[in-house]
Nucleic acid binder design. Structure first.
Length: 815
DNA sequence: ACTAGCCACTTTTTT
DNA sequence: AGTGGCTAGT
């Protein structure tokens, strides 16, 4: 009888292991670790998401059975035979399930914190696939901010907030701060507003209250900031609003101060997992600790080399001292990289090893060496963009998909030239970041109406829209209303509601009452109709539609944006069904970031900052602007700490690439309205030259330089030419179709002149029918040879007449 | 109260 | 370079 137990246990182990695919020994350890604190140091591309998902799935399905010898009852020969057959691919007998578990965890007792909403969604999706729809849905997976909002909505009254509190974004923060500056008579020149908001944010990240800050006040600036902090906080409180930092700060305070809550949520979240732990703040650590220190089942995953959010309060300390905070923590390192070629990985290692104070780890891979890392030195930002477009065009013709390409840069402002060239070449692209849809003025105005409908205390949102569209309520009137509200402890909306009873409002009372009537009407609409209907009606009730309709073309465009807002409200209402609330929608809007909407299945080139690219991977990656003053950024150049953060950012950027990586720098760059000449980035110099394939006119010793491109009519297609190309030392022959973008290279020019015959597949003639990825089918009208390329004028059936360069355009000939 | 025109400022990175 | 906020004029 004992013998069957032994046999069954061995089979059970095999069976459980088989459920999680191929794992290396370290990954296996992490997945089957169940109780107690765990720190996973996971290098880039080491399969940590898979580990995370599998670890949760194992907890829920098998508990600690993998490492345990416990059985609910003695095993029989039949049990062994049944499990054996399941192992060989047969179905699992239902009676066996209990025999495979030891203390399985219920899904709703698991809290998984990810960095983006998108990552949370993907985690749940993968869990649903492994465990079944309901089980997957029951796991709590969200960002810190979303998790906190959910808690705060339930418990808001304990902190003196309405449960429909408004979430302020950075624009709202600035407006609120402007008011505070006015009240306290502070000059913005004396204490820059954004600067001050930043300082207050850092204080909140460290759980410093206004009172603490007032007490600490190290110098006169800190003292002033503390006073502003206090006033700002009061302003938000009376508006029933929280900013992003408050969401975390207030949740921590709630758990610290209210024992009942602490007990409830500790019991609720018995297993906690935190991804991207290197980017957590002190406040976020406190939250994890408050929830996790009792049951001690805290698993964090991070990589100190990928810490890139120190600027917004993240401390690398959290990772470095995890073992002190959670005694007995097991530490597992995942150092095998499954993502990149060894050339790419080596380049990343070259860069990051220049940082001091690392936990220290070396990524390695069994993937092949792959192509060299390309470095292209451009003449200008336009040349850089053109080169990117040309390489993408070439890759497309060789069968790559648009979505395989990502273009990464340091600042959003760098996307401009790329847009120009991509649009010109008809390369479909998607920009992540920059101005969000919900940040557009008209959208924010409409959202302010919604917020005021949900939360009448929100004076800030009221100020924004009380005279938008114009209602003859001027600044003077608004100030009077604010004064009355302050004196009587009322909200501005309520003052407007009783405007007639305040003599000092005089003739303004009427428009004020009318405004109040509009909000009343919105409230009624909200009560009676569904959310989608409410949103649609709101456009009319507020007079916003009428205003835009009178504004011609631009108003029309804005109206379309509002149409989009209405339809996103409809979508939300349909998705949530009964649970849909206005506050819920507003919250989603406030917390959703651009990257959350990124759809990797849409076939487009994606453009974003390296920050936004964290956690993503692409076969082909371009990193632009590797110049001193751009990357590393001007502002980081004089502080070693900031420089190291830039270097980590570079490491993150490089390790996004799977197959090929292009690093670009430019000798001159037009940015912020100024042309600047920058040296190549130190990060480029740090990479072993043997790993690099140099392109672009690095040393224009002869014949190089500007104007070359147009001066060499058939500079393209050199390697099709008669002369077998002998690559210049330190360079690799570049593929033919890169055409004009690389024509300025000294080595290319003489050979190019000899090369004449373009490849047959590239010949287009007027009358040819072609198909374009975006513009659809069309007929070629005119062909003008140009710099080894051809300028095509194509009459598209649907998209009209377009001019485009043949080599940069995703077109194919059709019959 | 509204409009036009001017000036200043922005730009690191984001939930 | 472009945008947004502010002032002065109507």
């Amino acid at each position: 009888m004992q013998t069957f137990d032994q046999q069954f246990l061995a089979l059970r182990k095999q069976y459980i292991e088989a459920q999680f695919g191929r794992l290396n020994p370290m990954q296996k350890q992490a997945v089957f670790h169940t109780n107690g604190p765990l720190l996973i140091l996971a290098g880039a591309g080491s399969g940590k998401t898979t580990v995370l998902v599998n670890r949760i799935a194992n907890l829920i399905r098998f508990g600690s059975a993998y490492n345990s010898t416990w059985l609910p009852r003695p095993a029989t020969a039949d049990d062994c035979a049944a499990l054996q057959s399941a192992l060989q691919g047969g179905p699992l007998a239902p009676g066996l399930e209990p025999m495979l578990r030891d203390g399985a965890v219920r899904p709703w007792n698991v809290l998984a914190i990810t960095f983006t909403n998108k990552a949370a969604g993907e985690l749940k999706e993968r869990l649903a696939r492994m465990l079944g729809e309901t089980m997957g849905a029951d796991v709590n997976a969200s960002t810190f901010h979303s998790a906190c909002v959910r808690i705060l909505r339930r418990e808001a009254d304990r902190l003196g907030y309405p449960s429909s509190f408004t979430i302020y974004d950075s624009d709202d923060q600035q407006r609120a701060m402007k008011q505070v500056y006015k009240d306290l008579e502070i000059d913005e020149k004396f204490l820059p507003l954004k600067n001050c908001l930043g300082s207050i944010g850092r204080l909140k990240d460290q759980m410093v209250s206004p009172a603490d800050a007032l007490e600490a006040g190290a110098d006169s600036r800190a003292d002033l900031v503390a006073r502003v902090y206090e006033a700002y906080q009061n302003k938000l409180k009376s508006a029933g609003a929280m900013d992003f930092d408050d969401l975390i700060y207030n949740t921590v305070r709630l758990l610290e101060e209210v024992e009942e809550c602490r007990r409830y949520y500790r019991d609720r979240f018995r297993y906690i997992l935190v991804d991207e732990y290197q980017d957590t703040s002190v406040a976020q650590f406190r939250l994890v600790y408050l929830l996790g220190c009792a049951h001690n089942n805290v698993c964090v995953v991070g990589d100190d080399d990928q810490s890139i959010y120190r600027f917004r309060g993240a401390t690398i300390e959290n990772i470095l001292s995890f073992e002190q905070h959670f005694p007995g923590a097991q530490v597992i390192r995942l150092e095998q990289n499954y993502r990149s070629t060894s050339n790419i990985l080596d380049a990343a290692n070259c860069v990051i090893r220049n940082n001091r104070g690392r936990k220290g780890k070396t990524l390695w891979t069994e993937n092949g060496a792959g192509a060299q890392v390309h470095h292209y030195e451009a003449d200008s930002e336009a040349d850089e963009a053109q080169h990117v477009a040309a390489v993408i065009g070439k890759n497309l013709r060789e069968g790559a998909a648009l979505r395989d390409h990502a273009v990464l840069y340091r600042m959003n402002a760098q996307s401009g030239p790329l847009e120009t060239y991509f649009a010109r070449s008809g390369i479909p692209y998607k920009i992540i970041g920059g101005q969000r849809f919900y940040d557009r003025k008209e959208v924010k105005d409409m959202l302010s109406y919604f917020a005021l409908t949900a939360n009448g205390q929100d004076d800030l949102r009221l100020r924004r829209i009380i005279n938008e569209p114009a209602r003859k309520i001027g600044a003077a009137t608004v100030d009077k209303v604010a004064a009355i509200a302050a004196a009587r402890g009322m909200s501005m909306l309520d003052v407007a509601g009783q405007a007639a009873s305040f003599a000092e409002l005089g003739r303004s009372a009427q428009p004020l009452a009318k405004f109040y009537g509009i909000i009343q009407q919105l409230r009624d609409l909200l009560q009676s109709g569904d959310l989608g209907e409410f949103a649609a009606q709101a456009l009319d009730v507020t007079g916003y539609r009428a205003m835009l309709e009178s504004q011609g073309e631009e108003g029309q465009a804005r109206l379309e944006n509002l149409g989009q807002l209405v339809s996103s409200m409809r979508t939300y209402a349909d998705q949530k069904g009964e649970e849909a609330t206005l506050s819920g929608f507003l919250e989603e809007v406030a917390l959703i970031s651009d990257i959350d909407n990124y759809d990797e299945n849409a076939d487009r080139v994606v453009l974003m900052t390296m920050h936004a690219a964290k956690g993503l991977e692409f076969p082909y990656v371009f990193i632009l602007g590797l110049e001193e003053g751009i990357f590393p950024s001007e502002l980081s150049r004089y502080s070693d700490e900031d420089l190291e953060e830039e270097r980590r950012l570079c490491y993150v950027g490089i390790t996004r690439a799977k197959k090929e990586l292009w690093l670009c720098s430019s000798r001159s760059r037009l940015i912020f309205g100024q042309t600047r000449r920058n040296c190549p980035s130190r990060f480029l110099e740090e990479i072993d030259p043997n790993l690099l394939d140099e392109q672009g006119g690095r040393t224009p010793a002869w014949g190089g330089g500007w104007g070359q491109r147009t001066a060499q009519p058939s500079a393209g297609a050199p390697s099709w030419g008669a002369a077998p190309a002998r690559p210049a030392p330190g360079r690799t022959a570049r593929p033919a179709a890169w055409g004009a973008a690389t024509a300025g290279r000294p080595a290319a020019a003489p050979r190019a002149a000899a090369a004449q015959k373009p490849a047959a597949r590239c010949v287009y003639a007027p009358g040819d029918r072609v198909e374009h990825k975006v513009w659809g089918k069309g007929t070629i009208r005119k062909v003008t040879p140009m710099a080894g390329d051809m300028l095509l004028e194509i009459q598209f059936d649907a998209a009209g007449l377009r001019k485009t360069m043949a080599n940069y355009t995703p077109i194919t000939k059709i019959e």
